[in-house]
Write a protein that binds this DNA or RNA. Structure first.
Length: 269
DNA sequence: AGTATCCTGGAA
DNA sequence: TTCCAGGATACT
């Protein structure tokens, strides 16, 4: 589920809710979600949360003592701040705070949590992720260079977190539609003006996704447990067989890079 | 560069 | 009952 706009939405809300809060107790309810499980989450007890950061689809809590707790939500992960109440099923990590609690809930169990010193976590993320698509480092010429080096379908490159961090299946399909580019095109065949359009489209779809607090197709909710509104604004994702909003041609759904891929065969060349 | 794999549950 | 799903990785 959660791509950059969803994770950024959660981050912004958590900044308001948990920065300054102190951890009372951490309960790992499904051991395998702890990825680099050094011993312990016990060492976090009593520490205050000093910040909430995002890198690509990763979100991490900065904690006193230069510790960091990083989350990747996989396909169906939720990170929700709330008061007491019955705990939903598939809640794998529970952080009790002096104000409310933070729960990590993920029914498909693809999500992961890493605990480490903050430098360790930052290094790990820098090593595996390409530039942030909404930062100046992600320029049109950077994108041009990356695409020029590969014959793979352009969609495969956009999904590659090392090429650019944070795009997933929804926003990739949407960006390619806005740019008018067929997802199957070998990356190196894009002309300079097409790369420019694609670069612009990527930043636009992500910004809109954030403005609408993310896309709730299945079970995504933001950090307050509320669904996102961006599903109402999708052009192609999930619209296979329906008319293109621009030209009326039926949206095609195919399998590409092992993923459902939606595009307009008329608008995208 | 494709595809099997980790999981659960809703839809076809 | 089979297929499919906002992801990533470990294989052929």
């Amino acid at each position: 589920m959660p791509e950059l706009p969803e994770v950024e939405t959660i981050r912004r809300q958590l900044v308001e809710k948990v920065v300054g809060a102190r951890i009372k107790k951490v309960e790992v309810r499904l051991a395998k979600v702890m990825k680099n499980s050094t011993s312990g989450t016990e060492l976090l007890e009593g520490k205050a949360i000093t910040g909430v950061f995002r890198r690509g689809k990763w979100l991490w809590l900065a904690l006193e003592g230069d510790w960091a707790l990083a989350f990747h939500l996989g396909m169906t992960g939720q990170l929700v701040w709330e008061g007491k109440g019955e705990l939903p099923p598939h809640t794998h990590l529970l952080i009790e705070l002096d104000r409310g609690r933070l729960r990590f809930t993920d029914f498909r169990q693809f999500g992961r949590v890493r605990l480490g010193k903050s430098k360790e976590i930052r290094d790990y993320l820098e090593e595996k992720l390409g530039p942030e698509p909404l930062s100046p480092i992600f320029s049109a010429s950077y994108l041009e260079n990356v695409l020029a080096k590969s014959r793979r379908p352009v969609k495969a490159l956009l999904l590659d977190q090392k090429a650019v961090a944070g795009l997933g299946n929804i926003y990739t399909d949407e960006a390619l539609f806005l740019a008018g580019i067929d997802p199957r095109r070998p990356a190196c065949t894009l002309a300079e003006d097409e790369v420019k359009k694609l670069h612009e489209a990527i930043q636009k779809v992500l910004a809109e996704g954030i403005a609408h607090r993310g896309t709730s197709i299945r079970n995504y909710v933001d950090a307050t447990g509320v669904a996102g509104e961006h599903g109402l604004f999708l052009h192609v994702y999930g619209r296979g067989g329906q008319p293109c909003l621009r030209c009326g041609t039926l949206i095609k759904k195919i399998k590409l890079c092992g993923r459902g891929t939606h595009f307009c065969p008329h608008c995208q060349r």
